[in-house]
Amino acid sequence: VITKDQQAFMNVILDAYNRHQIPPDVAKKLLQEQYSAEENFLLLTEMATSQVQVLVEFTKHIPGFLSLDHEDQIALLKGSAVEASFLRSAQVFSSKMPNGHTEVLEERIRKSGISEEFMTPMFNFYKTIGELHMVEEEQALLTAITIMTPDRPYVKDQQAVERLQEPMLDVLRKLCALHHPHEPQYFARLLGRLTELRTLNHYHAEMLTSWRMNDHKFTPLLCEIWDVQ
């Protein structure tokens, strides 16, 4: 049974998750006509930048985050930005979009200079997220849990992060039992996605190196969060 405190705790995270989304006028550009690889790459870079801004605003509302050491806050954001962004875009990608939009988006991503060896695991991840049919609370909590992962590089006080992540895992476990009573493994399946995200994170780092080789330009915020000079 979810206690009243846990319900309130979850509502804070869910409310922040819903309030901080990529602005519609930015997201709308994904459906614009131009299709050249350069335009697609620029568009995806703009989306990624907006996604990072949204992520930071969401993270600031995760209970306890702003009480952490400042450097650890930066380390958590840098360490989780790629994974949390993929988790959010997977949720957007698999959500009910007007017909045809998913195909347009997929086509745009396929034609933006991203290597095939990266796109396959990325679209597989989008598919597995879609198949899970997570409810909104589960999506919000899983995103917060991804960000509040103690063993990110340069995090000094891992116990403090763990103490903040624990209650989120407890509530998520109860939610899974509540919303998926016939699937006792559902909670484990959600956590399995976090492992898949780490693999995506690894691919992304490799892709970044290849992009830097042929001199792709990123926005200052992306350079900072991806540690690209």
Binding site: V56, E57, K60, H70, K78, L221
Partner: peptide, 16 residues
């Protein structure tokens, strides 16, 4: 040292 954009975003008041 170039001011960190991330720090600026983090220090900006969380819009309620």
């Amino acid at each position: 040292e170039e001011p960190s954009l991330l720090k600026k975003l983090l220090l900006a008041p969380a819009n309620s």
